[in-house]
Amino acid sequence: MVSALPPQGEGRPGDRAIQLALQAAWPADLSPDDERQLRAVGRVLLRADATGIGRARWPGFFGHSGRAIAPAFAAARFRVQAVIARRGGAADRAVVHLVWAGTDRGGTYTDNRITDLHFARTTSMKDGGATWTPQPRT
């Protein structure tokens, strides 16, 4: 049987096949606006987690330890290969599935890494609008 996924190490040309495989494996169950917002936030949050860039934007997710944490991956050698957002078991929950590639501090490049980020829908007291808030890892 031939895999629909590109071989590991394929690089950017294989990313579209990974995206299509994710979409086929998990049919969409969120509104297009929610999925678009979650995909965008998921990408930025994963980049912050892996590279350290932008962690201050989410103190509730990363904490307030006060000490600098060396990033695990080089920002210049990090990319999201594919991302989808789907309902996380309840209407006010979602999970963002990301497949990504990066070079770690030791210089080792690996692609097809998988991360799931969980979000809860919250309502702003100020304007009554809803947004998605990342949930800390437990």
Rank of each mutant, 00 (worst) to 15 (best):
T108C: 00
G89A: 10
F119E: 00
S124W: 07
R105N: 11
R77N: 13
G128E: 03
F119Q: 02
D92N: 14
T123S: 10
R79H: 14
I84L: 07
T110I: 08
T115R: 14
Q81F: 02
S124D: 11
R113N: 11
H97F: 11
A120H: 10
D104H: 10
R105F: 00
N112R: 15
F73T: 01
N112M: 11
T131H: 14
A90K: 15
H118Q: 13
G102K: 06
G89N: 07
R79G: 08
P71V: 13
T115V: 09
A75L: 11
R121D: 00
A70L: 10
F119A: 04
P71W: 12
A72L: 09
V80L: 09
T131L: 09
R77C: 04
A72S: 13
R86M: 06
I114W: 11
Y109L: 14
A82K: 01
T122W: 02
G102T: 01
D92R: 15
T133P: 00
W100E: 02
M125L: 12
D116G: 06
A75S: 14
V95P: 03
A72V: 06
A85G: 08
A94C: 06
D111R: 14
P71S: 13
W100N: 04
A90V: 00
T103F: 01
G106F: 06
I114M: 10
H97G: 02
G128A: 08
F119M: 05
F78D: 05
G129Y: 08
T131K: 15
H97R: 15
P71L: 13
R113C: 04
A82H: 01
W100D: 00
G106M: 08
A130E: 07
A74M: 08
G102V: 04
R105L: 13
A74D: 11
R86S: 11
G128H: 12
L117E: 00
T108D: 08
G102D: 02
A85L: 09
R113A: 03
V99I: 15
G129W: 08
L117N: 03
T122S: 09
G129M: 12
W132S: 02
V95W: 03
P134F: 14
